[in-house]
């Protein structure tokens, strides 16, 4: 997993609740057997005027001028400001892959769907939950101010606005540690191999039918 460094990033506002994983990365792109290259198809159906299929040259496609990420002022955004229940729907990790590949490093929303939230941490994308009132305020400020940037400091668990106001966010200590150090979770778990084997032996003795 990639290490997460604190960042000062341009913010793009996506003002819709319940943004689902089919919207984040439509299914035709899930046919890829690779982990990378999903960025050009992030929000494909909203972002382009034509219908996207794998293998198309996205540079040749007509952009939807009304879609928020296509506005020049949000180009290069690293922080996505979103609404409640972001990432609901499928378990496809392609959704966080696409967001990361596009250039996002942080998603801020009042709430996230469970599987999406979990998937983000696995790849070094940071989902931040702030309360709905603060998210509302950030939306107003972003829309009012071109070039609006937030400073996200994972070490201190804070999001700081250009006026210097800071919001604290919660994060599981283990997840924070993993992100800051870019840890290989599988490697960490395998350090417990003896424990897993011991558990397995007990489990097999109690429920042998699970091991046939």
């Amino acid at each position: 997993m990639e290490k997460f460094y604190s960042c000062k990033g341009l913010v793009a506002p996506l003002d819709r609740a319940n943004v689902d994983t089919d919207a984040i990365i439509p299914k035709q792109f899930l046919k890829s057997i690779k982990r990378s290259g999903f960025g050009p198809n992030l929000f494909d159906e909203w972002r382009y005027l034509d219908h996207g299929e794998p293998g198309m040259d996205s540079a040749q496609r007509k952009l939807n001028p009304e879609f928020i990420l296509n506005l020049p002022r949000y180009r290069g955004a690293q922080i996505l400001l979103a609404r409640a229940n972001f990432g609901c729907g499928s378990s496809r990790e392609h959704a966080p892959w696409a967001l990361q590949d596009y250039g996002f490093r942080v998603i801020i929303a009042p709430s996230f769907a469970d599987i999406f939230f979990n998937n983000c941490f696995k790849i070094g994308l940071l989902p931040i939950v702030l309360d709905a009132n603060n998210v509302d305020r950030l939306f107003r400020e972003v829309l009012a101010t071109e070039g609006y940037r937030l400073v996200v400091n994972l070490e201190e668990q804070s999001v700081t606005t250009p006026s210097g106001e800071s919001f604290f966010f919660d994060i599981d200590p283990f997840r924070k540690h993993s992100l800051l150090n870019g840890l290989d979770e599988i490697g960490l778990t395998l350090q417990h191999a003896d424990r897993i084997k011991a558990f397995e032996a007990r489990h097999r003795a109690a429920q042998p039918w699970l091991f046939t």
Binding site: E93, I186, A193
Partner: peptide
């Protein structure tokens, strides 16, 4: 796959996971 919740009908703890977790389960059973 998120609809793994289906299997809970059999009094299982069943849930969907992302690809990193698929790899994690393959490698560690946990």
């Amino acid at each position: 796959d998120s609809h793994t919740s289906t299997h809970g009908a059999f009094a299982c703890l069943a849930f969907g996971i992302g690809t990193s977790e698929v790899e994690h389960v393959l490698a560690t059973q946990c």
